[in-house]
Each structure stands twice: as C-alpha cells, then as structure tokens.
C-alpha cells in the first residue's frame, strides 16, 4: 500500500515539476519576445524635401556640401542644371569629399573616385553615387531625401 502511495506521489511530483518548469519556460518566452521586438528600432519617418538654400548661394560651377536629414549631400550647379548626389560612398559608406583640383569626388577611406555626374570611375565602389531629386521652388533649392 505504501509503495503504491509512493508511486502515485512520484508521478504527481514529476507532473508538478514538469508543469512548473513548462509554464515557467513559456512565461519566460512570453516575456522575452516583447523585449527582443523592443530592441529593434522603429522604422524612420517619411521625410519631405528639405530646403538647402537660395539658388544664389549655389553659383554656377560650384559644388557645395549640405546636410539633408542628417546625411551629407553634394549639390552641384552646372551651366544648365542643379544636381544633388548623396555623399555616401557606395563601397563602405564613408563620406566622399569633393576635390576642386581634380574636379571629382574622392573617397578618403579606400580610394574610390567618382565623376561629378556620380559615375564610379576608380577604386572599389560598385555603383555610382545615389542621385537625389532637386527641385527649384520660388528661388529656393529643395533636395528630397531619396532619389
């Protein structure tokens, strides 16, 4: 009789241990999931075009570096148009600099070179610089955050 009691006791004990362990694990997972999701930053907000200055501030033949949505952008004014290129190198995201001497963009990190129309000329960059849309509105130059 006592042995049967023992058997029932052991079975109950095992079941209870399993129930405690199982529900504790499930509760822990339920708690971990929101934390993991929380750690992932929410998507950035959609942005409109940013005013970067008056058209007179961009003389013909000049290259000026402005900041659009916290990112560097080269604005180039030629005789007949204004163009904007993201200053982020397509190789490993360094900021490329304008070289007035060579009339080209040069990446100081790994030697990438781009033409003034964004084409990747030399070095490791796999793609041309990203071109951004430029609008001239009431004498102001607007650069949109994406091409």
């Amino acid at each position: 009789m006592s042995s049967r009691d023992d058997k029932g006791g052991v079975a109950r004990r095992n079941f209870l241990n399993l129930a405690v362990g199982g529900s504790a694990a499930a509760f822990a997972v339920a708690g971990t999931y929101p934390v993991v999701r929380y750690l992932e930053p929410p998507p950035g907000r959609a942005r409109s075009a940013s005013r970067v200055g008056k058209i007179e501030e961009f003389p013909v033949g000049s290259v000026r570096t402005v900041v659009v949505d916290d990112r560097p952008v080269h604005v180039i004014r030629t005789a007949d148009e204004v163009r904007a290129f993201s200053a982020i190198c397509t190789h490993l995201q360094c900021v490329v600099a304008y070289s007035a001497e060579h009339k080209q963009f040069e990446c100081p990190c790994h030697g990438g070179v781009y033409a003034l129309d964004g084409r990747n000329l030399e070095g490791p960059p796999p793609r041309p610089l990203e071109e951004l849309t430029v609008t001239i509105d009431e004498g102001y130059v607007l650069v949109s955050a994406s091409g």
């Binding site: 109950r12 241990n17 129930a19 405690v20 529900s23 499930a26 509760f27 708690g31």
Partner: peptide, 26 residues
C-alpha cells in the same frame, strides 16, 4: 499577446501553488 502572457503567468502561479501544497503534504 498580452492576454496570452498573463494567462501563462496565471498558469505558472497555479503550478507553483500546487507544488507548494504537495511539498507541505509530503
């Protein structure tokens, strides 16, 4: 998801209480 998590918490509470009672009995 919150309701499910609360349900799991209640389940754990129940399992632990039963366990405590079992320990008392033994």
């Amino acid at each position: 998801g919150y309701y499910a998590a609360l349900g799991l918490g209640a389940l754990l509470l129940l399992a632990l209480s039963l366990k405590a009672m079992d320990l008392d009995r033994r």
